[in-house]
Structures are given as structure tokens and as C-alpha cells.
């Protein structure tokens, strides 16, 4: 398992491939589920030209580790990777990545879905958007639909 909080743009597909090439479970996994969050150029009825992600470093790291530990108690996972950006992000850039590896599909699919929802509600990150009317803090998550 690994968690990375990074300040630079990254290629999620390359990151997944690189992590997978080094995982100790490379002969056991039969399923990989991934979620990649990407920045949109709109939100809440406004154009968004940039976004800045702030976080509470020690608590964020603690909660990402905790979420992976909890996922491991719920599902039979072989490996898990979470990458999350902080700092300034532009539209089309990836914000975050979750990847789960398991022997069979259900564990990785369910764990990946659970992890993104829990991360959005528990990991202390905050988004500030740049719109034509200035900067504004995102006050709540979308419902995901």
C-alpha cells in the first residue's frame, strides 16, 4: 500500500503502471479497479479557470493511511495506492487517483468505490476555485451523480 500527497502534475496511468510493476503481489492479482478525479472547467454554475487545494498535512496523511487500513479489514485487497494533489491545479489535470488490486473483481471494485466516498468526506482537503468573479472556497462536495 502507498499514499502520496504531491504538489506537481502527474500521469495517473503511468503512476498505476509503475506502482503495479513494483508490487509484491504481481502474480496474485486478477483485478485492478481505479478511480481518477480530474479537474473540470466548471462548477456550481460558474466557469472555473484554476483551483488550489489546501490540506492539513499530518491529519491528511493519518486519514489516508487509516482509510486504507479500514478498506483492508473490509475487503481482501492485495495492494492499494492513493495519490492526491495539493497546490494549484488547472482544468484537465488529474486531482487524485485511487487504485485497488485484488485476486477477484468484487473486492477491488467495492473497495475503490468506498475509498473515494470516504476520502471525500473524511480526508481534510479543501478546494478554492478561481472564477470570473474571483476566488471562492468550495463549501461542500457534489452528490456524485
Amino acid at each position: 500500500m502507498a499514499t502520496h500527497i504531491i504538489e506537481h502534475i502527474f500521469d495517473p496511468w503511468h503512476t498505476i503502471a509503475e506502482h503495479q510493476s513494483k508490487t509484491s503481489c504481481h502474480k496474485q492479482f486478477g483485478a485492478t479497479a481505479t478511480f481518477i478525479g480530474t479537474m473540470r472547467d466548471f462548477n456550481d454554475s460558474a466557469d472555473v479557470s484554476a483551483m488550489t487545494l489546501e490540506h492539513y498535512p499530518a491529519m491528511t496523511q493519518h486519514y489516508l493511511d487509516k482509510l486504507i487500513d479500514e478498506a483492508n479489514t473490509k475487503w481482501d485487497l492485495l495492494d492499494t495506492l492513493i495519490v492526491h494533489r495539493i497546490g494549484e491545479i488547472k482544468p484537465t489535470e488529474p486531482i487524485m487517483l485511487i487504485a485497488c488490486w485484488s485476486a477477484h473483481r468484487r473486492a477491488s471494485l467495492d473497495a475503490c468505490s468506498w475509498l473515494i466516498e470516504e476520502l471525500k468526506h473524511r480526508a481534510p482537503f479543501w478546494k478554492k476555485e478561481t472564477t470570473p468573479n474571483g476566488e471562492r472556497w468550495v463549501e461542500k462536495n457534489t452528490n456524485g451523480l
Binding site: H55, M96, L119, H121, R122, P124, E139, K140
Partner: peptide, 23 residues
């Protein structure tokens, strides 16, 4: 995560923040 009525003591770190919006 804690409640406002929870006890704190010397050496603790307390943080206040709005609902989280990462991911």
C-alpha cells in the same frame, strides 16, 4: 475528528475547519 465538548489537555493539537472537499 472530535466534538466541541471533548476535553483537551496541555500538549494537544486542536484544529477547526469547514467540511472537507477533496477528491
Amino acid at each position: 475528528y472530535a466534538q466541541f465538548e471533548d476535553a483537551i489537555k496541555a500538549g494537544d493539537e486542536v484544529a477547526f475547519f469547514p467540511p472537507v472537499t477533496g477528491g
